[in-house]
Write a protein that binds this DNA or RNA. Sequence first.
DNA 1: AGTGTTATAATAGTATAACTCTCGAAAAAT
DNA 2: ATTTTTCGAGAGTTATACTATTATAACACT
Lengths: 234, 234
Amino acid sequence: MLKVTVNLDINKNLYIKNPEETELGRRIVQHSILLIDEVGLESFTFKKLADQIGSTEASIYRYFENKQLLFVYLVNWYWEWMKFRVGFFTMNIPTPEARLKTAIQVMVDTSQRSTSVEYVDPEALHRIMVTEGTKAYHKKNIDEENKEGFFLSYKALCRKIADIILDIDPQFPYPRSLASTLLETANNNIYFAQHLPRLTDIRYEKGYLEKVMEMLFAFAMGCIHGAGKELKAD
Amino acid sequence: MLKVTVNLDINKNLYIKNPEETELGRRIVQHSILLIDEVGLESFTFKKLADQIGSTEASIYRYFENKQLLFVYLVNWYWEWMKFRVGFFTMNIPTPEARLKTAIQVMVDTSQRSTSVEYVDPEALHRIMVTEGTKAYHKKNIDEENKEGFFLSYKALCRKIADIILDIDPQFPYPRSLASTLLETANNNIYFAQHLPRLTDIRYEKGYLEKVMEMLFAFAMGCIHGAGKELKAD
DNA sequence: AGTGTTATAATAGTATAACTCTCGAAAAAT
DNA sequence: ATTTTTCGAGAGTTATACTATTATAACACT
């Protein structure tokens, strides 16, 4: 098996001191994921994290300005990882339809086709993204943070999906919206299946992720082919 | 012009004392919307709200257990209002396609077809929903809150849309998922157009809401007609 | 080996948020 | 007229989100 060392680079404005570079930094990232996964973002505090890793609040503040920015850092990590995975697994697929199908697989099922990373638990991070991911970019001061480039990774990921969509139909008028919709809808339906089942048709049972992929692919192809027709019909 | 008094009923577990029934209660609801719209959910506190309405923290706590539940109350208000509007404006439309189109219009454009309500500013509430709405149901303790019925209004709204979709194609396999996707995607694209334009194809300019509706309708019809074909093609 | 630099643990301290409790006055209901 | 409800005023508690200071160990440089 080929062991790949992924070099994810993350916006430097998100941290005070690069956590990748020190043992403590990596422990902060690693355990923040585990702790948020366990107690949720609201109950997560630097104090609890410090206790968990046998360090102090003050030490964590040397790496991250505050809990929100640490969270945005983690979310960026996820986006970068996802972008890498989409690129990697669609690389040698000839038809754009099959590339889109694979991209959706990679988006939905983070356990399969695992690209493991030393100190980050991608499954836990994926769970966090499903339940709390949107909080990273739904806030009042979004414009300032956007100016600092905190969401470039999401935009790049979205663009990567949009490009596959355009390979299927270069005339499709909504590649970016469809891409972001697929990304959001993937997480939403996983979440709804588990917690608010009446908001989805996916039942939370063995193999439900397969069903999510199937549905998303059907939606995507429907939108792509349907939209063309609608326009011509007008 | 016909003046309709809407009677929105909201889950009793969401409040300690029904805010509709007193002057102070209505002022709390009214100004919490305005204040959250102004400063965002994170910076919103009961203290600030109390100052704004010339009351005290303690008095607000007599109506709502905490800020999160007040927020879920407001979100429920929105869902109930939206459900009423969808029902009201699609009522006498004969074809299901036109009903879906109208439902999408009602979802996206809250200013047009205004159904005004005394003490609630629906435009401000809609802005809150667009930027922070999902926080109401993306949290760690979702299952407990769901058991208390805090999301019944959203489910009912989703079902209403799903029923229209089923009227178009009774065999469509994903009516609920498509309905929730439309609801979420509507808000997302409005938000993205304003703040993260690379995640959408909608440009934030005069008449952009029209474009959002057009796109959503195209997506919806694509999914509905496409999905059938996909299944038959297998 | 000696000096400077960096990393971090330990501790203390401040401001604010998120509540809870009690009391008294006014308003409303009986 | 009197009981109950409503609310404002104020105090008090705990937790969170930080900031600042110091001491010490590790490490890098010369």
